[in-house]
């Protein structure tokens, strides 16, 4: 009994302890000249859907959920956001060469087609980020058109 109590205390203290190590927040309200929405003529419906579903991890501005205030959840999110931005940053779209735009679009299309993006772990909480079948079709159609016009 005493052992359990000690373990519980240690866990509690550890939990409190790690709260003192905050993460850098990926938040920047700046408007980017190179942003995907600025350089492409994106229909409002598609723009809205992409911003809601993708921009949290694929741009320089994340709308954080409440649990980002708690460790270790924030560390987990930080990793995801870092990886997401490395792969694709919509804010920096126009800095990519045409060749890379082409490759990114190819990946965007197949990831959405195969339901790999947005991540299940993300849509579990962000229900509005989920793509319906018709939204999927619209976005793929739009991205394909963009790719063919490069």
């Amino acid at each position: 009994m005493k052992v359990f109590k000690t373990i519980a205390w240690i866990l509690l203290i550890a939990f409190v302890g790690i709260q003192f190590f905050p993460t850098d927040r990926n938040q920047n309200e700046a408007v980017y000249v190179s942003d995907f929405m600025r350089v492409n003529n994106v229909p409002p419906v598609i723009q809205n859907k992409i911003e809601v579903s993708c921009y949290d991890c694929h741009s320089n501005n994340t709308k954080y959920p409440w649990y980002n205030r708690i460790q270790p959840a924030a560390w987990f999110l930080e990793d995801h956001i870092k990886e997401g931005k490395d792969e694709l940053n919509f804010n920096e779209w126009d800095d990519y060469s045409d060749r890379r735009k082409n490759s990114k679009l190819r990946s965007i299309i197949s990831q959405i087609e195969d339901d790999e993006m947005p991540l299940d772990s993300y849509t579990l909480i962000h229900r509005d980020a989920k793509f319906s079948e018709s939204e999927k079709k619209e976005i793929i159609k739009y991205m394909t058109k963009l790719k063919n016009n490069l």
């Binding site: 205390w9 240690i10 203290i13 302890g17 790690i18 190590f21």
Partner: peptide
């Protein structure tokens, strides 16, 4: 003891990171 443990845990987590 509590304060000491907390300090220890912070140290450990810090060094872990």
């Amino acid at each position: 003891v509590g304060i000491l443990t907390m300090a220890l845990v912070s140290l450990i987590t810090m060094s872990c990171k």
